[in-house]
Design a protein around this nucleic acid. Structure first.
Lengths: 381, 381
DNA sequence: CTGAAAGCGCTTACAG
DNA sequence: CTGAAAGCGCTTACAG
């Protein structure tokens, strides 16, 4: 029985599974034969094709949205898909297409709320592209980042989305692997691969300007990087102060060793060595650091925002749940994820044509969210 | 050129790719032919076999850890794998094995820190089983949970790991799908599928006993569920009070509508209607709720822990970063994830044998982490 | 202990 | 617009 010779077939008929081969046994697909090789039977393209009375090529075309299919044929195929509850086998599809169906997301630590929510966006966006996401944590270590971009995974992947810490351009050039790669976030080697992120200079400047606007004049930055001359958030902070005619004091730029509450707490101590010159506002390089800053201020008996206003950066979910709720810069993470995967797709297509995609730069939006840590708050009841 | 006729081959020789077929072109694997069908060439089992001078079956056996392979053969194969940098194609492997290579993790919301870190553990553990994890968010809605367990995904999956809210036993029985399923966490329909979690009664009791031990006598519970007679955390709270001979007062059991800081904040208001009977301690049903509780107490001018001690539940990362750091119950999430996937694997194997695995119950450990919200804290400097 | 070959369920040139 | 058939890269009975 060939499907071509059967033509249209009633929906209520049960197709007979009579393909040859050592593993096949005769019998009705949906009744007698419930398992092949010990696996429960799932309907395949062949089953849909048999019911619709077309070839599997046609079913495949319908599923993949090819244009030139007779409307009647398409309806018949879609009905057949519904009837048997067909769902494609992605392993088979990816194998046939020469795709792995997997991309790797390389980031410092999934436990950090910023990366947790970024990962969520990337995972959701990746599903739309037919990708699963393999998450690799580097803990911000250079060796680990190098390994991740050098193809050190135990399986094949179609691409890499990387949120780096210490990677330099030569690390990327010498990685000895040609898996398409896209960088995310603030720290990344420029000019060697596409990148998507917000304008960190503008965002830091917006955060600092907000502190100026609410009347603060002694504005410190916790997490400032004096060692990196062109550090973006530090540059934005400086720019805002200079534009407002306020002093940029080295004593008010306190670095952190890590993105943690503990570091924020520790850094605050350095700001308060000279009692005459206590800051009345702090721009913290991340929300996580800002939480530590607030904590340190509270422990010294200072009120936020009355004595010291605080702005964070990242918009992590806890920022809303703590007292005081944190004012922060909120990058559009959905846009970051969507942009990254779009650039990755471009890279992959370029590689298939044997080309090398140019290191595109793509900027996404951010917003300043004003909350209690810089605004008047509810009076204690 | 058949590999059998070549026997041992020097590592430095370059195997010639001369397989027949319309897509094949002659030429050296690693030099001339760098792409097949537009895809970059990746070494395959065949390439490894050719270099090692064995059949692909043998290479496959080595990779999959079969026992009876001559030591010399194994070494040769492993060297060949190293030489060409072979990495298996999981799509092909899963297709051949009849596995999807994907499981779904169904949970309320990935943004919630508890679920974020649970997801991380599940993802890491799943990789060890060769699975990718597809995350489905239900936002705690029953309809969405039902759909998730009814096989409503656009692709095939090998199993489901579900953290439910409102699912009942009949929802599971009538789901019209037989994908293996494991439940996680506190709320789950009993007796219809395997489950892994901590002993919530014992954990809530431990949390409450801690408050008794530090001398508190008026212990309230925010998030208590008076409506659910056998709610586990509420039961543990009651049990601890009764064992200590302390009153169980309905007025001190304040429910929450959702697991959020806002709800915790709102619930505290209800506890302080009668000034004579103000609680001196609060057991909050989750850390997230506890953050709101602390916030509400601060806004009323109450100190934590001096005036009111607070214990949370879940051990979310922020618990350490806030002021005061939260005392909490910490479930062993790694054990939860490992247990869930082990039970899932059992289910799958049972299904392959045509059996139905029994709804095993597996308990994992928890710890009480004592931090500032119930202990003496650093004095403001 | 190892080989030769079928099969997993798709996609896709190649024909018609 | 649609079919017949090869091929994707593995695993695995079946032989030896």
């Amino acid at each position: 029985m060939r499907s071509t010779s059967r033509g249209w077939m009633s929906r209520t008929m049960t197709p007979v599974d009579d393909r040859p081969g050592p593993d096949r046994r005769g019998g009705s697909l949906r009744t007698v034969v419930k398992r092949r090789r010990g696996q429960p039977v799932r309907p395949r393209l062949t089953d849909v094709a048999a019911i619709a009375g077309v070839s599997i090529k046609t079913v495949s075309n319908v599923i993949n949205g090819y244009e030139y299919i007779a409307e009647e044929t398409r309806t018949r195929v879609l009905d057949a898909i519904d009837e048997v509850g067909y769902r494609p086998n992605l392993s088979a599809r990816n194998l046939a297409r020469g795709r792995a169906g997997v991309i790797a997301l390389v980031l410092p630590k999934l436990d950090m709320p910023y990366f947790a929510s970024l990962a969520r966006e990337v995972i959701e966006e990746a599903e739309r592209h037919g990708w699963f996401v393999l998450i690799r944590q580097t803990h911000g270590e250079l060796a680990s980042e190098r390994e991740a971009i050098a193809g050190g995974l135990p399986q094949r992947i179609d691409g890499l989305v990387v949120s780096a810490r210490g990677l330099r351009a030569e690390d990327v050039r010498d990685r000895g692997d040609d898996t398409p790669l896209v960088f995310l976030g603030e720290q990344y080697p420029a000019g060697v691969a596409p990148h998507v992120g917000i304008d960190n200079v503008a965002a830091a400047r917006t955060a600092t300007e907000h502190l100026v606007e609410i009347g603060r004049r002694r504005i410190a930055m916790v997490g400032a990087r004096a060692d990196v001359p062109d550090d973006q958030r530090t540059s934005g902070y400086r720019a805002a102060l200079e534009a407002a005619g306020l002093p940029v004091r080295a004593a008010w730029m306190s670095p952190v060793e890590a993105n943690s509450g503990e570091e924020g707490e520790r850094a605050v101590a350095e700001l308060f060595t000279d009692a005459d010159e206590m800051p009345d506002a702090i721009f913290a390089i991340t929300d996580w650091v800002a939480l530590g800053v607030v904590r340190a201020l509270h422990l010294r008996g200072l009120r936020v925002p009355e004595d010291v206003a605080v702005v964070g950066f990242d918009d992590i979910p806890y920022g809303r749940a703590v007292t005081p709720a944190l004012t922060t810069i909120s990058p559009d993470r959905a846009e970051v994820a969507a942009g990254a995967l779009e650039l990755l797709e471009e890279q992959i297509q370029a590689a298939q044509r044997g080309e090398r995609a140019s290191p595109t730069e793509r900027q996404v939006r951010f917003r300043l969210l004003v909350r209690e840590s810089t605004a008047a708050r509810q009076t204690p009841g």
